[in-house]
Computed example of a mutant assay.
Amino acid sequence: MRLLFLAVLRRHTGNAVTAQRIRDHLEAAGHVCILKDAFDFESPSEIANFIKAENLEAAVALHLYRGGRLVQGHGIPFGIIFGGTDLNEDVNQGEKNKVMGKVLEEARFAVAFTESMKEIAQTQWVDPVFTREVKAKVKRTPGVRLIGEMAQEDLHAIVKNCFAVVNSSVSEGMSAAILEAMDLEVPVLARNVPGNAAVVRHGVTGLLFSDPQEFVRLAKRLVSDPALEKEIVANGREYVRRHHALQVERNTYGHLIRTLQRSIED
């Protein structure tokens, strides 16, 4: 694949050294990587012309503001790599902060070199006001604990020891948590929103609730009816096996990428 790699390349700086190292990685993987100084381009139109002239298929930008804002909006996929100034300085400037948020919305991936950089980015752009509200609510609610991120194998071990998994989202696309619970043979109670209802068939592969009162009623029913629990678990596991098998998904994505590759070659 032909890649554009944008970075600030002032000689003997950390950014320049990092960019050279990453370019070497990409080229070692078999890609053509054209490394350019972000300061060589004065406008997005110059980037657009360069992308067209060099027949570039994707882009990577080092530094969310200096590089990222130049690669968005050109119709090619791109990823960004956080620098340092973007998270330590630019994030505190209102207009730059907004621009960087827009870049992240469009980026296919974002790389942070340290956990602290990752945490700064998440705080600035995962909705900090809502996060504080949730944490405060949990502290005031008996019997509810808020657990941070953990490795998937640890999460699965916890889920296996739970009586049920609850999805209370007011909006869902396709809930990986629901599918994982079904695969782990744990009953699911989910809010009755379109994304959840597309996966959970009420009374068959799980239970759907529309309000807190209905949730309480259905939870009590599940606790008191072992036969229902057994049926839901079996049906949920079979649903995942039939419609979300890992190998089938892997084969499908492999086919799609080959199709994408052929379209690029054509």
Rank of each mutant, 00 (worst) to 15 (best):
A198F: 06
I158C: 13
Q72Y: 06
L222C: 00
A110C: 14
R250L: 12
R201H: 14
Q213R: 07
Y239I: 09
N192W: 11
I178F: 00
E149I: 13
L3I: 04
A110H: 04
D37H: 08
T123P: 10
Q122W: 09
S169W: 02
A219E: 09
G75Q: 04
A112K: 10
G84S: 14
L104H: 03
A121L: 04
E180K: 15
G94V: 07
R258H: 11
K52V: 07
A136F: 07
S169Q: 03
R108A: 12
P194H: 05
V165C: 02
V71Y: 12
R21V: 10
D24C: 15
I80E: 04
K96P: 05
S224P: 13
I158D: 13
T141A: 03
H255A: 15
T141C: 06
D127H: 08
E153K: 06
K135F: 13
R66L: 01
V159D: 02
D37S: 07
F109V: 10
G68Q: 03
V32N: 05
D183C: 13
F39K: 15
L104A: 05
A245I: 04
E133F: 15
S175P: 03
R250D: 14
E185F: 12
I158M: 15
N192D: 12
G67H: 07
L146S: 01
